[in-house]
């Protein structure tokens, strides 16, 4: 029994879980920003994909992965802006707008990949962000092998979670953002600009998803591949819901989903098909939404465009 446990829960698996969780962590923070302001963002997948592509492209032409990171951030923000214009200003159904963004992203990235590099499938290799070793943590037994050495974006993601938490729950801007998502009319009455708040929240949401995508193309790997996000934007959405729209909740869910991903190969050896392990995040999310494990309740004003009277 103990041997089994060690086989599944050991430093190698946990370190891999953290690596696999990182794009989910970053993107789910983006989901939180949008949804806490009252805007559904199922376009996270597409925003990630555009971020992954732009990160690769910028790194390719400049040789600077850090510029790639900024490029991915800006490209994601741009996609967020599109979602904001559509859903906040033109009151397009938010789910429709998100779907359009996902389809657009899938098309435009392959279109540009084929036009710029004349290849189908995968981009050339580009330089990627550095792997770093944290000096002291590195030496601690148990913790060291799990947290000690990772790509710098893994640490960035963890720091961002803390920052998002502080922003949302400890600053007046965070309070305003949440009030816009819960009760926009009341927020408007006390002088909060609902439209501006939602615009900024959705732009930041896109930027975060862009970072999540960049992790895939210029940190974890060093190239872009067609549809390389492979549904991670939706898993991030699931992590956000499973984490009840809170940064630490989404972090926990991302780590859990990352862990499921990391152990699937080992479970396969025991005769449990990996596909069933891959289903876990989605099933858990449905169960959570249905209220079977501590009901997940979305922000009240979610999905409704705001009409100023």
């Amino acid at each position: 029994m103990w041997d089994y446990l060690v086989y599944f829960v050991n430093a190698t698996v946990l370190a891999a879980a953290l690596r696999m969780a990182t794009p989910l962590i970053l993107t789910s923070m983006g989901g939180i920003f949008a949804e806490r302001s009252g805007v559904i963002n199922i376009g996270l997948e597409g925003m990630m994909l555009v971020g992954a592509f732009t990160g690769m492209l910028t790194s390719y032409f400049t040789g600077q992965p850090w510029l790639g990171l900024i490029g991915a951030l800006l490209a994601g923000a741009l996609m967020g802006l599109v979602h904001a214009v559509a859903s906040v200003t033109y009151k397009v159904n938010q789910v429709v707008s998100g779907t359009a963004i996902n389809i657009f992203a899938g098309g435009v990235t392959v279109f540009l990949l084929r036009w710029i590099f004349d290849v189908a499938g995968t981009s050339p290799a580009v330089s990627r962000l550095p792997v770093v070793t944290i000096p002291l943590i590195n030496r601690i037994p148990l913790i060291g092998p799990i947290f000690g050495t990772h790509n710098i974006m893994v640490y960035m993601a963890l720091i961002i979670v803390v920052l998002v938490h502080i922003f949302l729950f400890r600053t007046v801007w965070g309070l305003r953002l949440r009030s816009v998502g819960e009760h926009p009319k009341a927020a408007d009455t006390v002088g909060i600009n609902v439209f501006l708040t939602r615009y900024l929240a959705v732009i930041v949401s896109g930027a975060m998803a862009g970072l999540g995508g960049a992790y895939l193309s210029i940190a974890h790997l060093s190239r872009f591949g067609d549809q390389m996000t492979a549904g991670r934007g939706f898993i991030a959405l699931a992590a956000m819901i499973f984490g009840k729209w809170t940064p630490f909740g989404a972090l926990g869910a991302s780590l859990l989903f990352g862990f499921a991903n990391a152990v699937q190969m080992r479970l396969q050896e025991l005769g449990i098909p990996s596909q069933f392990v891959q289903m876990v995040p989605y099933i858990l999310t449905m169960v959570a939404l249905a209220g079977f494990i501590g009901r997940a309740t979305p922000p009240k004003a979610i999905g409704k465009p705001y009409e100023k009277e």
Binding site: V92, N93, A100, I103, F104, V110, F111, R114
Partner: peptide, 17 residues
Amino acid sequence: PRELVVIIQALIIMFVA
């Protein structure tokens, strides 16, 4: 590239909506 039509389809969704 043939992916142009995917882009066009996404745009149609956005404009119709």
